[in-house]
């Protein structure tokens, strides 16, 4: 006797439309913390804009000190 009540493949296929519908319906729920600050507008620069500022502005520092030792060059 073949038991037609317990057909896992058929059960799985039957549940797919419900799963898709559920994903769509509940997609507004976000899990976890986003932490992306995407709603904030910051004055971000591209590299070329940054280069322009570096070239134009002198950044003259009145402090002049001896630097600490340079890192030891790595042997290749």
């Amino acid at each position: 006797m073949y038991n037609t009540d317990n057909n896992p493949r058929r059960d799985f296929l039957k549940k797919i439309p419900f799963a898709i519908f559920s994903i769509g319906a509940f997609s507004f729920i976000r899990f976890g913390k986003s932490h992306n600050l995407s709603d904030k507008k910051f004055k971000t620069l591209s590299r070329s804009e940054a280069d322009e500022i570096i070239k134009k502005e002198p950044f003259s520092a009145s402090v002049k000190i001896r630097p600490l030792p340079a890192p030891v060059p790595k042997k290749i």
Binding site: A50, I54, F59, K64, P67, P69, P73
Partner: peptide, 21 residues
């Protein structure tokens, strides 16, 4: 170098002058 801007190819980590900057 200021006249090159952010240029990694010409950046130096082993600089060792008497005084900085």
């Amino acid at each position: 170098e200021k006249n090159r801007g952010i240029d990694l190819a010409h950046a130096d980590i082993h600089y060792n002058p008497e005084q900085v900057p």
